[in-house]
Design a protein around this nucleic acid. Structure first.
Lengths: 367, 367
DNA sequence: CTGAAAGCGCTAACAA
DNA sequence: TTGTTAGCGCTTTCAG
């Protein structure tokens, strides 16, 4: 602080509640009351105060307010990457629901780095966010999960809460809510869709192998295969990354290899877009030569030609639910503490478009 | 506050700096010093303090810190819609640059409502954000601009700053920085590209007519036309909205009308995607029957078939620059006040892909 | 290298 | 209906 230091010309100081009080000839308590509209204030007084505020260009200090005991009225959200539509749509749900309850949204991009993720949780805790929503699949690393569990407890102990969104709950003992979607079921359904069309050699492409998202999708894929009596071939599983360039590169390599398959289940729509490009460049037609499906149902699925058959996830709704779970009932009694540990599960469903055709023959290899 | 109220079981209280101080047997000043690492502290003392912090699960309170005089270390950003890639990429730049300087990002979605926009500026001012970045085109409404100007001054007076990103500066006297891009130039270039291919009847489609973004793009469009001696035909200008459904609907109507044109300049890539769908459904081939260009160069341009020729904007870089302009030099002398009024202008360039072909004949109308 | 103490701007009990 | 006042948790002089 520069208190007591001599001040050079042009030094600015924001008007405080005291300046307003003095100017209006009232006490700070009264100013506070007109600010919060939570206690009766005489009409004439209110007007004088409002005039004073306007004249002084007074803007209430949210930090002082938060410190004085009311909540900060913010919610935090941690995503991997804000330009990725999967996260963007969830973020939109979070932002909308936050705004609806008069809250601001602190957005952090962890760029798929678990350490950064944890660091952001801490930062949001420092900010005393009413809730922190952690979005996207998680790795099953013990140490990481332990760290996260500790933070969930800390947050909870402080009257805030951690909400997992699109990843498995931390278990019943951990005070963290979770919004899940039927990831395995969606993967099952779309794999079955492929099987129904006669495809048996289905390549699974993309997604970090250690991510819960990938594990669940693979589980659904395998269950569908087994249910139809098709033995899963490990050689057909090519996990790696999410992202267009991964899909493009790996698909290209695979097309140049001797691996045989008639359909591709891309880990998400973006990977599918990359794969489609590789197929196109290899002179393969979708779905005539090869069928392709994705996951997430983000806008690109509609733009691709052929339009992509994929699995729809209620992304925005997940974001909304996440903040609902994370926030103590606003209207309810103040003393009420949210369940903290509730788990919401939303459904998924496949969206059939134009990228799948019945298998007519083995894929013809080109070299 | 519930101070002095009798407390029921399970009441939680977060550890404060005083708890830590007591536990470590030091003063709060010392704890603060190990927290901020800005003053020498004996190794042994530091260790005791750190142990205490860990044992108590201490998490510093950002509000108290902000109130005590240090900056809140946040930057605010106001976009129309976070799932729109135009905004998402700018937001990413803002977030990255903010994170780089150890700041958190408060994201607000104004949903194209100027009133909401102003309200968010106020909210961010209350939060004492180090800078508030206002993204996207603006309407030329006097009252609105006046409001904004007042807020720019207020923000500036309080040591923060308003940065306009992707919209025209408020003028030299207003203390607000701006990051612009060569919007008119990009529109000029791509229109000229079309003209060069022999197109003269070029439909301009989409974008709110009163938005600066639209005005600039139209200006470039008209300038290109005039330079080539083609008289602009007002009947060819069909502004409206950004958004796929607008592009789809209006394009459909126009194709069913008697309006003649051989090329379409969509106000942005999303509108282009909608228009393309309408053309496709009308049995028109791009670019053989009709040429199409967009603006922004967001990922969908690469996904469309044919891939869309469009204008590239350095979106992420704009976001980065915006926070650089808005933040006082971090390393520089503390007393330094940023120019506040600087205007950055970034270049744009066209990206030629596959959606434009030379005009070979008048468009054949189908009914 | 460390401690005491004065705020930062606001809210809310309590008293009037 | 209004004023007085005691903090909220932290940083930073100033004095050892």
């Amino acid at each position: 602080m520069r208190r007591g230091t001599q001040v050079t010309a042009g030094e600015q100081r924001r008007a405080t509640i005291r300046d307003v009080a003095r100017q209006a000839g009232v006490s700070t308590a009264t100013v506070s009351r007109v600010l919060n509209q939570n206690y009766p204030v005489a009409e004439s007084t209110r007007e004088r105060v409002e005039t004073a505020m306007r004249e002084l260009g007074y803007v209430v200090n949210a930090h002082a307010r938060a410190l004085a005991g009311v909540s900060a009225r913010t919610v935090g959200i941690i995503v991997n990457e804000i330009v990725d539509p999967f996260f963007a749509f969830i973020a939109r749900g979070v932002e909308r629901e936050a705004a609806r309850t008069g809250r601001l949204c602190l957005v952090c991009c962890a760029q798929s780095d678990p350490r950064r993720e944890l660091a952001f949780v801490d930062l949001l805790h420092e900010q005393r966010a009413d809730a922190v929503v952690l979005v996207g699949g998680s790795v099953a690393d013990r140490a990481y999960l332990g760290q996260l569990t500790r933070r969930a407890a800390d947050l909870h102990a402080g009257g805030s809460s951690l909400v997992l969104c699109g990843r498995p709950s931390l278990g019943g003992k951990v005070p963290a809510a979770a919004v899940e979607y039927d990831n395995e079921g969606g993967a099952f359904a779309i794999t079955d869709h492929l099987l129904t069309q006669g495809h048996e050699r289905i390549l699974y492409l993309g997604g970090p192998p250690d991510l819960s998202t990938t594990r669940d999708r693979l589980a659904g894929y395998r269950r569908a295969l087994e249910l139809r009596g098709v033995r899963p071939d490990p050689a057909l599983v090519h996990t790696g990354l999410f992202g267009k360039s991964f899909g493009y590169r790996r698909m290209g390599e695979l097309l140049r290899s001797r691996l045989e398959f008639t359909a591709v289940f891309a880990a998400n729509d973006i990977v599918a877009a990359g794969a489609a490009q590789a197929m196109e460049e290899a002179g393969l037609r979708i779905p005539d030569d090869i069928s392709l499906v994705g996951y997430d149902d983000v806008p690109v699925a509609e733009e691709m030609r052929p339009r992509l058959t994929t699995v729809h996830i209620p992304l925005e709704e997940m974001g909304r639910q996440a903040v609902r779970l994370g926030l103590p009932g606003d209207d309810a009694d103040d003393e009420w503490r949210a369940p903290a540990t509730g788990v919401q599960r939303l459904g998924t469903h496949i969206v059939v478009r134009d990228s799948v055709a019945p298998r007519v023959r083995r894929r013809t290899r080109r070299t």
